[in-house]
């Protein structure tokens, strides 16, 4: 019944124009229309963080953003940020510290942690916990995730990794 709305969005560096149903969430657009299933979807009301993506460089809830609201913006997902290498150091640390089990929360954890690393590289362990408090994990008990992020923050930066 309701008309689709045209939107032009740059997803992981590729500009595309689509006619989108207004009620479609950005996360469902990415997963179902574009096949980018790296970002997950779980609670669909903003509490779990599994759907975290970047819009114009800043992390957002993909389930609390309409795809049509991304018209004219850039969207980056875990796929794009893995391919560019931006997340490589963090991914390695998650691997080494056993910071994932089922992996459902991991893409959201990575994007949120990367925002922390960029904005607040001096964060204490307590501050890491506070920053990550909007991302739920049902498996790890969080310690390993905080360990992995802390490892990255405490490791001297090497040229070009970020």
């Amino acid at each position: 019944m309701e008309d689709r709305v045209e939107a032009t969005i740059t997803v992981n560096g590729t500009r595309l124009t689509r006619r989108i149903e207004p009620r479609m969430h950005l996360i469902d657009f990415l997963r179902e229309e574009l096949g980018l299933t790296g970002s997950h979807v779980s609670c669909e009301h903003g509490v779990c963080g599994a759907c975290t993506v970047r819009v114009d460089g800043e992390i957002r809830r993909g389930c609390l953003t309409l795809a049509v609201q991304a018209d004219g913006r850039t969207v980056d997902t875990v796929e794009g940020l893995s391919d560019s290498g931006e997340l490589a150091v963090l991914q390695q640390a998650f691997h080494e510290r056993n910071a994932l089990q089922c992996g459902y929360c991991t893409p959201g954890m990575l994007l949120t942690a990367q925002a922390l690393i960029k904005e607040h590289p001096e964060a204490t362990r307590e501050e890491i916990r506070e920053f990550m408090s909007g991302n739920l994990c049902r498996c790890t008990g969080y310690q390993a995730i905080i360990d992995a992020i802390e490892t990255v923050l405490r490791t001297p930066r090497t040229e070009g990794v970020r």
């Binding site: 903003g46 963080g49 992390i59 957002r60 809830r61 925002a115 909007g134």
Partner: peptide, 12 residues
């Protein structure tokens, strides 16, 4: 401000 929700929500 830092008490409101989480960063991803405060961004929007």
């Amino acid at each position: 401000a830092p008490h409101i929700a989480h960063v991803a929500i405060r961004n929007a």
